[in-house]
Computed example of a mutant assay.
Amino acid sequence: MRQKIVAGNWKMNLTYPAALALTDEITALLAEAPAGPAQPLVVVCPPFPFLAGVGEKLPKGGPLHLGAQNCHQKESGAFTGEVSAPMLASVGCEYVILGHSERRQHFREDDALLGQKLKTALAAGLKPIFCVGESLETREADDTFAFIAKQLKDGLFHLSNEEFAQVVVAYEPIWAIGTGKTATSAQAQEVHAFIREQVARAYTADAAASVSILYGGSANAQNARELFGQPDVDGGLIGGASLKAPDFVAIIRSF
């Protein structure tokens, strides 16, 4: 059975005290009621300066896991202002988001660079959450599937079978991020099923059946249950709603 995952991407938000308070509130709300067998794995991804402090607050052996929003492609060196995968692992990170649409757009990260980051993250023992997704222009041109297939092929499918088994994929319809728009459950399912089909072609049917594919396009407490009910949607990469503990926990409970 595939791992169900809800990951909160806090982006460049909050102050350190606010981040610690949000962590406490999420933890408390999750502890209020029994999780049940459908409890997904939960990842919180704070900004770099907050990682160690947030990580120390996560209950050991609990449902919450620590992730980062990015890492550099080199393990160390003269790269002022950057953060390496081994650094992230050393403060307790288990996951790292790579290839987020905002990194691709604002920082010009391409699939060749992301391929290097994947290798570095995996070597440090991190599990990458690798993002793919199309713009509104690409969707309206009816080029969604060719575009995503290329992102997968160029950025991800160079990994070995063993490496790929450590990866989580996130589908981000860029036109639905921060816009209030959301792909319909049918649209999300269609693309998730396509991604799974591409994995089967590049690797094996077992790999395709095992990989967790998350939806990352403005999922919220109101639409999460329907989205997560689709057969190929294994959870969500949550942006704005992850900054409000009641909303984030409601999304987690949608399973």
Results as ranks from 00 to 15, higher is better:
G133I: 09
G115P: 13
A250P: 00
N13Y: 14
E82L: 05
A146V: 11
K181P: 10
Y215W: 04
T179M: 13
Q222H: 12
A200E: 14
P49C: 01
L152A: 08
L126C: 13
G61F: 02
P59H: 02
V211P: 09
N9R: 05
I252C: 08
Y171W: 09
L126M: 12
D154W: 00
W10D: 05
I5Y: 02
V249W: 10
A31K: 12
K119W: 00
I177A: 02
I26S: 04
F145V: 01
L118F: 01
V211R: 02
Q151W: 06
L51Y: 11
G99W: 02
L214I: 03
E56R: 15
I252N: 05
P40A: 05
Q187M: 08
R225C: 12
E190D: 15
G178S: 09
D232F: 02
G236L: 05
T27Q: 02
G53P: 10
S254V: 01
A165W: 03
R104A: 11
P246I: 11
A193E: 14
D142W: 01
E25Q: 14
E94S: 06
G178W: 07
S212I: 08
A186F: 00
I129G: 04
H72A: 12
D111T: 07
R201L: 15
V167Q: 02
K181A: 15
A221T: 08
G92V: 04
G240A: 11
E140D: 15
S84Q: 10
S76F: 13
F145H: 11
K4H: 12
K244S: 11
I174D: 05
L98S: 11
A221K: 14
P17S: 02
Q39E: 15
L122W: 03
K119V: 15
A208L: 12
S135W: 00
A186K: 10
R225T: 14
A245R: 03
L118C: 06
V43E: 07
T15W: 08
A209K: 13
S90D: 15
P46M: 01
V96T: 08
E162Q: 15
F228I: 00
